[in-house]
Simulated scan of single mutants.
Amino acid sequence: MTEIVHVTAPELVTYADDLAGLLVETVEEGSSVGFLAPLDRETAAVWWRERAAAVEAGSIGIWIAREGGRVSGTIALVRAPLPNARHRAEVAKLMVRPSARGQGLGGALLAAVEEYAVTEGITLLILDTESGSLAEQVYRGAGWKKIGSVPGYAADPAGSLKPTTFYYKELAAP
């Protein structure tokens, strides 16, 4: 059974090595999540540990999906820092282990973040993803609206510039 958990800063540090494995697998299979291949596990673990301060401060929320004690997926919610943008946040780093894909886990992680955002008074979410990626199906299926695409916006893990598609979702006020 899969459990989705909103992690604290100390829990994030505890799960950093397992999250590093997820990040490395995600990059190795070609998903564009901000890192180039090859990505070594220690660099990935350090990156996760460095997010703990932001989690502690409340500027980033991180959720993990656990199956049998192992991290099978993750997602982050990055709050907008400026006073005129407190109503919005960015969804980032939605990752599901390749072996766990196709079972609705990405949609479940997305739903968990959306539910939390509503309780926090966030009424607008944005995100971006590589154009043509499988993630686009998840976002469209969850009611996200496409804004448009920007050519050559980010490099894939091999270093090739790819177009990125931007999405938004309006949430009901609490």
Rank of each mutant, 00 (worst) to 15 (best):
T123M: 08
A172D: 13
L12T: 05
Y116C: 09
D18T: 11
T2W: 08
Y15P: 09
G73F: 01
V150M: 12
A154G: 08
H6D: 11
P10G: 02
A37D: 13
L82V: 11
V138D: 06
S133A: 10
S32P: 00
T26M: 02
G34V: 06
K146Y: 10
A158E: 10
A117L: 07
V113H: 08
L12Y: 07
T129K: 03
A20L: 04
I122S: 04
L127P: 04
P83L: 04
V7K: 05
L12D: 03
W144G: 12
A158T: 13
K162A: 00
S31W: 09
E170K: 11
K162Y: 01
A111V: 08
S32L: 11
I147K: 07
V5M: 14
E120T: 04
G159H: 07
F35D: 03
P38G: 08
A9R: 12
L171G: 04
Y153F: 08
A80I: 05
S59K: 15
V96A: 07
E90S: 12
S133N: 09
W144F: 11
S31M: 11
E28I: 03
V118R: 15
P83K: 03
I122K: 02
A44W: 03
A142I: 00
E136S: 01
T26L: 09
E130N: 10
Y167A: 05
S160R: 09
E28G: 02
W48G: 05
R66C: 11
W63F: 14
G107P: 10
G141D: 02
E42Q: 15
T119K: 01
L134I: 11
L12G: 02
F166I: 10
Y168G: 02
G148L: 09
E56S: 14
N84D: 06
G143P: 02
T26D: 06
L12V: 06
L77H: 03
T164S: 01
A89V: 02
K146L: 14
A154V: 13
